[in-house]
Nucleic acid binder design. Structure first.
Lengths: 220, 220
DNA sequence: AGTGATTGGTGTCGATAAGACACCACGCCG
DNA sequence: CGGCGTGGTGTCTTATCGACACCAATCACT
């Protein structure tokens, strides 16, 4: 079956920059391209938009197909459409940013037969197409989102923490997401002011150091 | 001539929200649709992306074709692609925001035979497609851009002022762009801190009131 | 039991930005 | 010459941010 148009149409894809934290470091999920162009290169996962689905829905579908993760808030980054970015045909991609908990992802990436791997953001391979540019923009957007407002995206940050967590653990997560070190006292002021922390009146034990108080978060 | 693809492709357009100030009020340029769908409705100008041009280049081309204005910084707003937003076929549009000087526009809109009109943002007609949503997003983005940073877009604000202007004139322009009234003293502090104003040591005359000092801006 | 290592936990100060707010100055017109 | 209309100025409060240093509690080891 073929589709014919009076005028040329570009292909439109949705690419999703899927960030996670693994072993305390920011990672991004990339897939290895099995076919030309850029065969063997790594690329941001994504795929073609279907004709009957909204762009963000298509992005969510691709995300679920490729990782099994659903219900994640997706933030649109923008459209990238430089001619020649795909040597086969004109492809315009709409990029999204997602932040997903690492443990869900490990599971699915393992069962998924396709060649997908987490990459440390500081050890990226050469990327296909213009995905290096997109990923850099996505990295900046992620840091900005998590830094500033109490958005859905920022709430996802707490998925990297156990239900009961210490403030030091929380600080490590936000430092990783923001890509910079934070002052301990200033961070504690910030998190107390911006999130509804519940003091569980419990303490850690077992470390060869002073026990830490445990907290949980209440979302409004 | 026809173009055939193995899989269906959406059409991709660039729509440009062209803002200007006319008689002290924020206006947007809309065109009347001559053909179905939405024949007779007003719409944001835009058009199809060519296969060999970048999206922002296509947006600039459409802007110039429809208004004669070139060299204007375009800011991408995002992609809009809800299915059914165009009843004919699947159309994904990438929206841009432009701020152009009013006098250039009057000239071109007059020579342009197509039916284009400036609309006061407070007296908008019913719009075709989902252009009401896009325009609302564009309005917010415009206000944000002009408010905060010293960007190219913000520099365009000074195009609505004569080379020699009074601070009251400048305040009126920024109030219009931001959509809110500003405190006189705070505005003067802000503009002095953020822009390189040159005191021309001249004064207005002719008003039945105290003369105003004239300034010009030096861009860095 | 003592000591050192390790992480937990706390408060102040200064700079900066933003917003609220009121009065006199000056030229023109009548 | 008086009043109308716009021009022009400074202080205070508040909130936010970042820089910055010390003691506390537990554990491991001796």
């Amino acid at each position: 079956m073929a589709y014919t148009y009076e005028y040329p149409h570009p292909a439109v894809t949705a690419d999703i920059c899927i960030f996670s934290i693994r072993e305390g470091r920011l990672h991004v999920l990339l897939i290895e391209r099995l076919a030309d162009p850029f065969q063997g290169s790594w690329a941001i996962p994504g795929g073609f938009i279907k004709m009957d689905e909204d762009i963000v829905v298509g992005a969510a579908r691709e995300l679920e197909e490729e990782t099994g993760v659903a219900g994640v808030p997706l933030e649109q980054l923008g459209a990238y459409g430089m001619p020649g970015r795909d040597p086969r045909e004109r492809v315009i991609t709409v990029a999204f940013v997602a932040l997903v908990p690492s443990d869900q992802m490990v599971l699915t990436a393992a069962t998924d037969a396709s060649d997908a791997r987490w990459f440390d953001m500081d050890e990226l391979p050469v990327l296909a197409f213009d995905h290096d540019v997109i990923l850099a923009d996505a990295r900046a957007k992620l840091a900005d989102k998590v830094t500033n407002r109490v958005t859905e995206t920022a709430k996802s940050a707490f998925q990297f923490l156990p239900k009961k967590f210490t403030l030091a653990q929380a600080q490590a997560v936000f430092e990783t997401l923001r890509g910079e070190e934070l002052d301990k006292r200033n961070f504690r002021k910030w998190i107390a002011a911006n999130w509804d922390l519940v003091d569980l009146k419990e303490k850690t034990s077992g470390g060869r150091h002073r026990p830490a108080a445990l907290y949980s978060v209440d979302f409004v």
